[in-house]
């Protein structure tokens, strides 16, 4: 059978999600953000939450997330997404409120907002993209950068005596009584993408069921910041990042 005979709408098993806009993303080729955007667009469509979903966009590479996923968005000041999401979820409790944040946003400037929102147990889903680097500003060291990892501001590798230890904020959030679901996933292979999708689905369900704060960390890549090809970055992530940020559920209540 020729491909032309197979390519027919009746045989289609996978298509571009309806909620992704036609705009081309500004992300670098191979960036994990695109995959997570696609997962969110698919889930909101499948769960029928298109009209009730409100996302809070961060500052960082994902700052234009509101241009790419066709639901309601609010753009928060740097790191303040959980605080804005708190107001949104309290004022309109019938809505699904989720934040989409990178590690510079959530684990650096927004640490206080994140921890307090999770400690209060706000009914929001936090999607945390951890690529261990400040991607948007040119690949500087982030709090999550691994020991020995080379970045623009640690050209000889991150040193503990000078730069401190990598911050594992997801483990920290799992300790808080306000969180109901804390998990760490990745999107570097097809099975991992399926698992990440299930995790985000559970986080959205928890937010709708008012069970508390759900945190889904996606251990991601920044191939341009890491100075690698997308495939090399995925491999590096799977071998090095998962050592310090092991994948799996940390809390599931």
């Amino acid at each position: 059978m020729k491909p032309e005979e197979i390519i027919d709408p009746a045989n289609r098993v996978y298509a571009r999600p309806r909620l992704l806009t036609e705009v081309n993303t500004h992300y670098c080729p191979g960036c994990s953000h695109g995959v997570v955007h696609r997962i969110i667009a698919e889930l909101l469509d499948e769960m029928g939450l298109e009209d009730r979903a409100v996302g809070v966009a961060p500052v960082g590479c994902a700052v234009f997330a509101y241009n790419y996923i066709d639901v309601d968005w609010v753009e928060a000041a740097h790191g303040r997404a959980p605080a804005v999401a708190t107001a949104l979820s309290r004022l309109s409790p019938e809505n699904l409120v989720f934040t989409y944040q990178g590690d510079g946003d959530l684990a650096a400037i927004g640490t206080a907002e994140t921890i307090h929102a999770a400690n209060r147990g706000e009914n929001i889903a936090i999607i945390f993209i951890n690529n261990a680097i400040y991607g948007m500003t040119g690949g500087q060291m982030a709090p999550t950068t691994l020991i020995g990892q080379r970045t623009a501001t640690t050209p000889y590798g991150r040193r503990v005596d000078l730069n401190g230890h990598p911050l594992n904020i997801t483990n920290l959030l799992a300790q808080l009584p306000g969180t109901c679901y804390v998990t760490r996933q990745s999107v570097h292979t097809a099975p991992a993408v399926r698992k990440a999708k299930n995790a985000i689905k559970k986080a959205f369900e928890n937010a709708m069921a008012k069970k508390g704060t759900s945190v889904v960390e996606i251990v991601s890549t920044c191939n341009s910041g890491w100075k690698m090809t997308p495939a090399q970055a995925n491999e590096w992530m799977a071998t090095h990042m998962t050592e310090h940020y092991p994948l799996g559920d940390l809390k599931n209540e």
Binding site: P3, N11, Y14, R16, V35, R38
Partner: peptide
Amino acid sequence: YMSNPDACIGCCSCALVCPDACIEVYRV
């Protein structure tokens, strides 16, 4: 592009990892 179209089994692995959602998969 499909350089070896006869081998495709329509498993969707390519579409799942595509960051730009530019792949559509068909299966019979």
